Simulated scan of single mutants.
Amino acid sequence: MESIELRGCSLDELIEICQEMGLKRFRAIQLFQWVQQKAVRSWDEMRNIGEVDRQTLSSHLHFHPLERVREQRSKDGTRKYLFRLHDGETIECVLMDYARTMTRDRHTICLSTQVGCAVGCAFCATGLEGFRRNLSTGEIVGQVLDITHYVRQEDPDFQVTNIVFMGMGEPLLNYEQVLKAIQLLNHEQGQTIGMRRMTISTCGVVPKIIQLAKDNPQVGLAISLHAAQDNARNQLVPMNRRYPLASLMEACEEYTQITHRRVTFEVALTSENARQEEAEALVRLLKGQLGHVNLIPVNPVVGTGMERPTSEQIKRFAQVLEDAGMAVSSREERGTDIDAACGQLRRQWEGE
């Protein structure tokens, strides 16, 4: 039997593997709970699995927790992690804590899905380093498990409540691994994170948007829009040359027809594009869409040459959208004092 990645295995897969090894079904359930629910980082922590069975399992299942290279903490509570993978590559992810809701605190993790990114959006630090490879399901899930492990050392009751696939990489270009990771994170014997509390952010991979609506209509969709006209978006989001705005808007309409869920349209605002005419073009583009606009002041990133808009520019831009009857919000700034933009910490560390 070839060596299989433990953190990327579903419960059904573990049951089958255990049966092939001559182990009982309950061993697979115990194993799954230790890994996916309790977020252990070693075989020795699995205390109700005997040493002989652990040796048998470890001979066929490889278990590579992510190595924490660096952790930065913001004054607002945001934590940014740089993790090293088993092959030496590095990825980033971010934990954002929000004030208590009616029932509990909200702990959101922003996950990476690739090492680097091939899309090359103009304002993104990740794209400056190019694309290395896709993450495996275990490496995607591992970000949640390892952050959970570390935070529980300080807060034993810590539980991730929300997931956003908005870190390094384009999630829909690693589609199968991302969807399997979602299933694992949702599992009732794992982290039990609700499907509707997970969101995939994409630059606009049109065929996969439609496929996502059919494969998992519970998961939220966010579109990294950033411009309302093709000539401008071609410069900001190179994927637009392959899937221009007309086809992207059609895909979003089909998504809402299938899922009955609204789409979040993300617009990165700079000192250059936060203008009234840009806002008016956005109103025209999104007319008739079931959606919500999220305005994101760009993080300052060395190498992009882009500057943040002023608070007044953001307010004026939002007002144009609100006057047109659109739902709009401005993303709360978090982690700017620790370089929370995707790819910044990795670039900084690799440059040392």
Rank of each mutant, 00 (worst) to 15 (best):
I4C: 09
I4V: 09
C9V: 09
L11R: 15
E13W: 00
I15G: 01
C18D: 05
Q19W: 13
G22D: 01
K24C: 00
I29M: 13
W34I: 01
V40E: 06
E45V: 04
N48S: 10
I49T: 08
V52Q: 15
D53N: 15
R54K: 15
R54H: 03
H62P: 03
E67R: 12
R68P: 07
R70E: 04
Q72V: 14
S74R: 04
T78C: 05
H86T: 12
H86N: 11
H86L: 14
T90I: 14
E92W: 01
C93F: 00
C93P: 02
C93T: 07
C93N: 01
R100A: 04
T101G: 14
T108Y: 11
L111H: 08
T113W: 03
A118H: 07
V119F: 11
F123T: 00
T126A: 07
L135R: 06
S136F: 00
T137R: 10
E139W: 05
E139Y: 03
E139G: 00
Q143N: 02
L145C: 02
D146G: 00
T148G: 14
T148D: 12
Y150F: 09
Y150Q: 14
R152E: 00
Q153I: 03
D155E: 06
D155Y: 13
P156V: 04
D157W: 10
F158T: 03
F165A: 02
G169F: 06
N174I: 01
V178A: 00
A181K: 02
Q183H: 14
L184W: 09
L185D: 13
H187G: 00
I193D: 06
G194P: 04
M195L: 14
R196L: 08
M198K: 06
M198E: 08
C203S: 14
C203K: 13
V206F: 10
D215P: 00
L221H: 10
L221V: 03
A222N: 00
A222L: 01
L225H: 06
Q229E: 10
Q229M: 13
N231C: 02
Q235H: 09
Y243F: 11
Y243W: 11
P244C: 10
P244D: 10
A246E: 13
M249F: 08
A251P: 02
C252V: 07
Y255S: 04
Y255M: 06
T256Q: 12
I258V: 13
H260C: 12
R262P: 08
V263P: 10
E266D: 05
A268W: 06
T270L: 07
E272Y: 12
E272F: 09
K287H: 15
Q289C: 02
Q289M: 05
V293F: 12
N294L: 03
L295K: 15
N299V: 03
P300S: 13
G303M: 04
M306K: 11
M306D: 05
P309R: 08
P309Y: 06
P309Q: 06
E312L: 12
Q313P: 06
Q313V: 05
K315M: 04
R316Y: 05
F317V: 10
F317Q: 12
A318H: 10
V320N: 05
V320Y: 02
L321H: 08
R331W: 03
E333V: 07
G335L: 14
T336M: 15
C342A: 02
C342V: 03
G343Y: 01
L345K: 03
W349G: 04
W349C: 11
E350L: 11
G351L: 14
E352Q: 15
E352L: 13
